[in-house]
Design a protein around this nucleic acid. Structure first.
Lengths: 190, 190
DNA sequence: GATGTTTCGGGACAAATGTCCTTTTTCCGG
DNA sequence: CCGGAAAAAGGACATTTGTCCCGAAACATC
């Protein structure tokens, strides 16, 4: 639900501190609501989240949002777009204060081209993401919306964040009306 | 819908012909209905499809199947499980006669460990798969079932295969009853 | 504090979908 | 060719979900 990757974070942290040029990896901060990457636009940097939580979503042609995941510490964004040289697939938006390590694209690609270790790390990241996406897709068939919703509510507790109802509905893939109904059920029953 | 990867196929073909030991990559054939990999079981080989079409699905605890994709020439299976050293996520089943290149797991992992080129190839494969899965997930929100269904029917025409209704329903994520209804609509209207 | 404006929740209805069960079709063995 | 079993199709109903819209609450303005 909230994805994190501590291993990648410490790896990048080290890269950041040891870099010779001081332009390959820079630190950036964003305020709540800022868009780190925008759907259909060219990416400017590859981002690794150092602190904070973002949401990753895409807006479909019918104006509905499809919210893929919440990204936390150590999660990476933009790497697929860089690899495939394509425009941004989805929008990454800060839902808390966020700080990130931003790698320049040439730097990232040159590393991919020659650094075996980074390749392996990235391979595992992408594999994890596939596992995550796949299991979520089937999860939404298997479990009831109640189940997903209560996990969302939990997430807000533990992370001390507050999601808008729009976000919750977009994540669960339902309308706000349905969300309200389910919320009412949840609060009355248990 | 039917995924293929001609580039990977010719790459493996070459590896196969040039291998020194004759056990790293072997050829295998399967009949329609055979299961190449089975969910929850350990994988024995990494497979690359040389010829034929398979379906990739997982059976949920409520006994419903979730059909991810149809895999054709050049598609790979088992690589994520090998990488993450885990049991098979889904079942791969032949829906036509199928022949595959089967790589031994130690061979595959040793290549990953030291061969930069294979790493890069795999990276692109996984990136493609993420793009594919993501766009399909949102696609199913955006487009009507009619749309997906007519694409399925087309696929059967062009590939000269015939899917069972169960498969079609599992792919579309609906019940057979719904599938029948939609089929009727499709045949009456246009 | 009254009034207008915006946001939010929920009622009412319609559409879509699943489940259950009956009817129809298909397929075999005799 | 017939009868019966098995598979497929479809009718009927219940449930879920979405859309539309109205009224209540929150907020701002004067």
């Amino acid at each position: 639900m909230l994805r994190t990757n501590p291993g990648l974070l410490s790896f990048i942290e080290e890269l950041y501190l040891n870099q010779s040029r001081k332009e390959d990896i820079i630190l950036r901060t964003f305020s709540k609501g800022d868009q780190l990457l925008k759907q259909h636009q060219q990416i400017s940097k590859i981002l690794i989240i150092k602190e904070g939580v973002t949401k990753c979503y895409l807006t479909e042609e019918n104006d509905k949002d499809y919210l893929f995941e919440f990204l936390g510490k150590g999660e990476i964004a933009g790497e697929i777009e860089a690899l495939k040289n394509m425009d941004c697939l989805c929008t990454i938006e800060a839902i808390t204060e966020v700080s990130v390590y931003a790698l320049s694209i040439p730097f990232f690609l040159s590393q991919i081209d020659k650094n075996l270790e980074i390749n392996k790390i990235l391979l595992h990241i992408l594999a994890d993401r596939i596992l995550n996406t796949s299991s979520r897709a089937s999860y939404q068939q298997l479990y009831s919306i109640e189940h997903g919703l209560s996990k969302l509510l939990q997430l807000q507790q533990t992370e001390q964040i507050s999601l808008t109802k729009d976000d919750m509905a977009a994540y669960l893939g339902i309308s706000i009306r349905s969300l309200n109904r389910t919320l009412k059920q949840l609060t009355s029953k248990p």
